[in-house]
């Protein structure tokens, strides 16, 4: 800000000149200290760590090679499949809950609120246990694994998506409904043809975020007794960990999650930017 040429600013009742630092000097000192601390930490870690051991544990090339191609063809594919099943069911149920939440019939609103509060408040893990073990024990029925996963992920996801979709529906201007009604559309038709398509467009970024969260939550499937062909990334990694006594499979499984979640995160930012432009 202050160039050497700028006129000296009169300092009121100034503190002794020798002690005071200019703003620029202070910034430089603070930044220097931060770099110094970082350098020390990096040096200590680099010198103290047993790099051979770390490499063996995390980056064992032989173990890594052994994971392919199954970690992609089975585990990654299953993770995506479970996530999409849960997301699809959750989106449908979430839309229904959002409409119930906006209903003019009070009991529908109460039911929706109760559902949303309950499933947002309990851990997804508990829902998996209830569906995976509780329901089969209590009712003497065995659910198909895919159905269990779809229900467990979807029931929790729906609670979050319902609130998001409700906000989206409320964000569609009132004039849209009025225009639709004035053309002779019924309330329901206006909702389906005019309001919901616009609402979903508005909530596309937060829904994509929900998809990312579900991708990670799909790892809870490892709780259920799965056959080999049903393994998803977390279960697959854990199995390989036990066999090889190496963290490498876990690291690769983690990278596989990133392969899904990072592009989705990028997509969210682009969608947000384009929605911002459209307004």
């Amino acid at each position: 800000m202050s160039t050497p040429k700028s006129a000296p600013t009169p300092t009121p009742k100034s503190a002794p000149k020798s002690k005071s630092m200019s703003r620029r000097q202070r910034t430089r000192v603070v930044r220097g200290v931060q770099y110094a601390v970082l350098l020390v930490v990096v040096l200590v870690v680099a010198l103290a760590a047993d790099w051979g051991e770390i490499r063996r544990a995390f980056f064992d090339v032989e173990v890594a090679k052994a994971q392919f191609p199954e970690i992609i063809t089975t585990a990654l594919v299953n993770t995506v499949l479970y996530t999409l099943l849960g997301f699809g069911f959750g989106l449908a149920l979430g839309l229904l809950l959002a409409l119930m939440r906006l209903s003019k019939v009070p009991p529908y609103r109460w039911l929706a609120v109760a559902y949303i509060e309950f499933f947002r408040g309990v851990p997804a893990l508990l829902v998996f246990i209830a569906l995976g073990f509780g329901v089969p024990l209590a009712f003497q029925v065995s659910l198909n694994q895919y159905v269990t996963v779809m229900l467990a992920l979807g029931l929790v996801g729906a609670a979050y998506m319902a609130e998001t979709i409700r906000a989206g529906i409320l964000a569609v201007p009132k004039g849209q409904t009025e225009a639709a009604r004035s053309l002779g559309m019924s309330q329901g038709r206006a909702m389906v043809s005019i309001v919901i398509p616009q609402a979903l467009r508005i909530v596309l970024p937060p829904l994509t975020n929900e998809l990312i969260l579900l991708t990670k939550d799909s790892s809870l499937v490892y709780l259920l007794g799965l056959s080999l062909s049903q393994y998803e990334l977390a279960k697959f990694g854990r199995d390989a960990l036990n066999q090889n006594r190496s963290l490498t499979p876990i690291l690769i499984a983690g990278l596989c999650y990133l392969v899904i979640t990072l592009p989705l995160g990028h997509l969210v930012r682009r969608l947000e930017a384009s929605t911002a432009r459209a307004r």
Binding site: P173, E178, A179, A180, S182
Partner: peptide, 20 residues
């Protein structure tokens, strides 16, 4: 009312076209 509205065209100050 939906049937009656079919016969009544309405034009709004804020257009209210369907943006999608």
């Amino acid at each position: 009312i939906d049937r009656v509205r079919r016969g009544i065209g309405m034009v709004f100050q804020s257009f209210n076209l369907f943006p999608h």
